[in-house]
Amino acid sequence: MAAVTAGPTARGAARPRRTLWRDRRRALGGLALHRAVVGVPMLAGLSGLVFLLADRSPFDPLAAHLGARYQQVSAEQRESLSGALGFDAPWWQAWWAWVGDLLRGDLGWSRVYAMPVSEVFAERLPWTLLLSGTALAGAVLAALLLGTAAGLAPGGALDRAVTRTGVLVQAVPPFVLALGSVTVFAVLLRWAPVAGAAEPGEPHTAAGVARHLVLPAVTLALTQLPWALLAVRTAVARATGSEAVRAARARGLTPARVVAAHVLPVSLAPLATIVGARLPELVVGAVLVEEVFAWPGLAGAVVGSAQALDFPLLAALTVATTAVVLVGSLLADAAYLLLDPRVGTDA
């Protein structure tokens, strides 16, 4: 690091970056505004769609609420219960009440967890962020390392092994991967705990959570690794063959400098976009992994709220997930703008 900042190139590099930010500030603002204009009505419409679909679905919220007790309830009692619980309101009324509460900052009450939806988020969101964040970071790091190593020698033994393994892992459904890793690492080898975020009855300690995090995070990272890895490998392979890299080699730069200064910067931009575009897959993967590992996160609550037809929680989760995907793709495009000067903002 010191060697670089002391060199003359560093002073040269500082200026273009500032100019880049100044040039792109307006473009970024425009991009964000454009996305907001599309995104906010889309989220509103989507939340309405959740209520409409739930209403049209063959599932009766009262039956979900009563479970086995439904069998012991008479028709009159069902009517009275539906009225008292608010299940008999038309879907648009329920949706409108939900939107009104939302605008007042009230996310509603989750019946399946018997607490306010905002508390469900407060209790579970950190766990989901920890798991998905760790998994995504792990996947990106591993993709960069393996992808770069494979891309530097396309067609080599390492490249063939990495590419084939990547395709194979991509073909395995996440829940199979999750159940398989539980069986092998937790039950047979006993290297890691089977499920949860802490030993039963123990408080959540940093060491304990780290130990419980390894298996689900590695599993989730594995489900996300193949596409990131293959993208990096392709980008690196292309960059390695480019004139800029050949010129750098010709100037006698060390291989490490060539990779760090010339290959990686060009390969990072596609990775940023693809990470943004693949966020929905991370969310889906997290739902399955959290369910199998009994991770106390928000993704597990998606399953619970859907099974129980817990509308306020289901709508909030759907809208929040969609918002994450929209914001993720905005951030990815913004990163692309900053990373690659050739990109315009016509999107």
């Binding site: 690091m1 670089v4 190139t9 560093a10 590099a13 790091l141 960069l144 390392l145 400098r257 990779v259 760090a260 200064a261 990686l264 910067p265």
Partner: peptide
Amino acid sequence: MTRPVPTRTLLT
């Protein structure tokens, strides 16, 4: 476009 620093941080 010389930015070796992030890479090294990443590797560590």
